[in-house]
Write a protein that binds this DNA or RNA. Structure first.
Lengths: 235, 235
DNA sequence: GTTTGTGAAGTTATTCACAGCG
DNA sequence: CGCTGTGAATAACTTCACAAAC
């Protein structure tokens, strides 16, 4: 085989790959050697043919009769998701949410690295979170110029979010993950994901009021949007 | 005129309604009187006919030639989303993330009310967050029995998430919002949304590596994650 | 003129169902 | 047998395009 195949992976599949990734990670850690599309489907709450079809876009990695080798499949998904690269991430806004994000395992996992942190609160500036120093937002351009972030995470209050987004875009960030409860206006070439607790709750509210889960089986996660996560305190 | 819920609203539309809701809220606060499908579409990063089609599932609330009356439309969306009710919410895990959630405007907005808070950390138990006392998790059943939560928010470390989920489900919660970085196993009748920073980042990583944003506009918030519903497998 | 609301057309995603391989 | 991989069939969703309404 000569070149990377020009397989086009459907958007709906892309949205599910991270879910399979997370499941496989847990299974591998628990010592699983192989996994079937049925198992994956149960855990991801989707249909088994969907799992097989999704995985088939990456290649034919299963073994008929026994399933997929868990760690090998995981490696293929990681590669497809681009987790074999190193994506520098910057986080602006280090209140509870920003700290939760900056401390979360999501940033210590393969693929991502907290490159810089910013806030405007003088009591936070110069402190460190997991070894990374918090700079004043005034220094954004200076600090990021040496290691330009691929992803900008916005965890500021709503009122500051748009100007932070503008600033990040102006200095060339390729994608934004917005956790501030505000709709952002950015150029179309910037990849943007908007994650908002109200939005999550409202979807639940709809299905609770209509007493009716989606038809047969609801999707697992087309194009998501969500809040981050982070552990509570150790005792 | 329209009675309660004769219309079946497509899942994809349900996922977008909260985005329109948020936009309308901002527009109304900014003093807008009317809004067109074009404006909404721009702000939501979707196609204008999609906006019109989505809104048409709620009824015919627009005025040809001038658009929709913003506050009226907002009220219709709120009603459809069930935000005219009062959903008690409980949050378990009050580390940085849990505190960020409990303090977030999402819970002070129409529709939701923080009914109870739980942690196992003795330094947090008996403290208050926005006036609501933090109970020890041991008291979960006792505390929630008088005001059973409709939505349980899990913001614990990954290791505690499954047992907290089990406990909530056992005492009858109808839906879960899981922010712990772990796939949960709950009965199919429980509505479940899984929200994970890694998953968010991984989708960005995919599109960054493939140098290729999805089709035209990156959606702000298509479908839910894992809405509880049945794998529905016949033998 | 403007902008909605909606059938019809087009596109994408899901599910079925089974051949093919271990 | 069991389980994958995949064409074919369905279903869901999106977009077009335009008549109707202001």
């Amino acid at each position: 085989m000569a070149m990377s195949s020009p397989r086009r992976i459907p958007e709906a599949t892309v949205a599910r790959l991270p879910v399979y990734q997370r499941i496989l990670l847990e299974l591998v850690r628990a010592g699983a050697r192989t996994v079937s599309s049925d198992q994956l489907a149960d855990m991801a709450r989707v249909n088994a043919s969907k799992v097989r079809k999704d995985l088939s876009f990456l290649g034919s990695f299963g073994t008929r009769g026994s399933g997929y080798e868990a760690d090998f499949l995981l490696a293929q998904i990681d590669r497809e998701l681009g987790l074999d690269r190193d994506w520098p991430v910057t986080v602006v806004g280090l209140g509870n949410l920003g700290r939760a994000l900056a401390n979360s395992p999501g940033f210590s996992s393969r693929g991502f690295r907290v490159a810089s942190l910013f806030d405007v609160d003088p009591t936070l500036v110069d402190s460190r979170i997991r070894g990374v120093v918090v700079h004043h937002l005034d220094e954004y351009e200076t600090v990021t110029s040496s290691d330009p972030p691929a992803i900008g995470v916005i965890a500021t209050p709503a009122s500051a979010a748009q100007s932070v987004a503008d600033r990040m875009v102006r200095s060339g960030v390729g994608s934004l993950l917005n956790f501030a409860p505000r709709v952002l206006n950015v150029p179309a070439h910037v990849l943007l994901r908007y994650v908002d607790l109200s939005i999550e709750l409202q979807v639940l509210s709809f299905y609770l009021s209509h007493g009716d889960h989606p038809g047969t089986q609801a999707a697992s996660s087309p194009l998501p949007h969500a809040l981050g996560l982070t552990p509570a305190e150790p005792g």
